Computed example of a mutant assay.
Amino acid sequence: MASQTEMKLRDAKTKLEEQEVDIASLKRDVGELVKHWDRVGGNISEIEERLDTTERQLREREEKLEDLESETGAAFNATQKLLTLYKKELSHLNSTARELEVKVEARLNATETQLEANLTEIQNDSGAFSTKLNDQEAGFDGFRNVKRLTAKVNAKVAFSATIIESNDVFTGPGTNSTNNILIYNRVFTNIGFAYNSKTGIFTARLKGVYHFSFMTFGYNGHTSGAILVKNRHYQVSTWQFTGSDNSDTTSNTVILELNAGETVNIILWKGGKIHTSVFSGFLIFPTL
């Protein structure tokens, strides 16, 4: 009995020692907790505020995400409806295109048939016309020949004009060999009106062969002479140096082939001067 009591006392003592160890350990833990609280205890309220703010932001983002999902769903539904409508329109257009294709093909076939009939009729008419044209061709050729001969007979061109030194016209001395145009202002003859007494220029009205002649008369104080030009290009000229005699006379003649619209006129040599001059020309015969 005593031994059992002693054993119980030893067990109780052992447990008491273990509890003392546990209590010491708890004291150390509490001390550590007190120290940790001293270190972070002042930041607990700030951390709680941050947690609250983060929670609010998360809720706001969640609400926005829900709104975005709703908008996306509505847009998707609208797109689906629009796509369905487009499919219906495309089907209608395809049907209309097929109907038009059938109508156009029928119209083309009818037009082709009509054109073939018209072509046959034109070919028949053309054959009859060719026969009639062959019958009349000889008469037309004769008529054209008569017309050409009549035109040749009526082609009459001839002129003759003179210039005398005066204050009204230029007779020199020339200072520029390209612009010293002599204007023969006194006209004797101008059949066909090819010569212009205002400009001194002869303009061919018909294509043909023409005869031109010119004469110059000057005193010994200046060189006497002139140049006949065609379309501003030199052709033939006269030239007489000053000498011991009191006057000088020069002349020249040329035959030119002109096209309709080409021009002929007389200009002075540079430094030249005349007292009087005659310029004449006429159509020898027209050419085709």
Rank of each mutant, 00 (worst) to 15 (best):
K103G: 03
K87W: 04
V104Q: 10
A78Q: 07
T72Q: 07
A74Y: 02
K81G: 02
K88Q: 10
L82E: 14
K87T: 13
G73F: 05
L83E: 09
E71G: 03
N109P: 00
K88W: 01
K103M: 09
A97R: 06
N109K: 15
E66A: 10
K81S: 06
E101D: 13
E69D: 05
T111P: 00
G73I: 02
G73L: 07
L82V: 03
V102H: 07
L108R: 12
E101A: 12
T79E: 06
E69P: 02
L93H: 04
A78R: 08
L108H: 04
Y86E: 12
A106N: 09
S91W: 03
K81R: 04
K88N: 05
L100Y: 08
L90Q: 13
A74M: 07
D67Q: 11
G73Q: 12
A75E: 06
A110W: 03
L68I: 03
T72G: 06
A78K: 08
E101M: 05
E66H: 10
S91I: 00
R107W: 02
S95W: 06
E71I: 02
T84C: 01
L85V: 02
S95T: 11
T96A: 15
E105P: 00
D67H: 06
T79A: 13
V102I: 11
E105Y: 00
H92A: 15
S91A: 15
K88T: 08
L82G: 06
A78C: 00
E105I: 00
L68D: 14
E101K: 11
T111H: 10
A78F: 01
T72S: 07
Y86G: 02
T111R: 09
A78W: 00
L100H: 05
N94K: 15
G73T: 15
V104M: 12
T84F: 02
L85R: 03
N77W: 00
F76S: 12
T96M: 11
A97M: 12
A78V: 01
L68Q: 14
K81E: 08
T111A: 15
N77S: 10
S70G: 10
A75Y: 08
E71P: 01
G73W: 05
T111K: 09
L82T: 09
Q80V: 03
L82H: 09
G73Y: 07
R98H: 04
S70Y: 08
S95P: 00
N109Q: 15
R98I: 03
K81V: 02
R98A: 15
S70I: 04
E101N: 12
K87M: 07
A74R: 14
E101Y: 06
T72H: 11
H92S: 13
L90G: 02
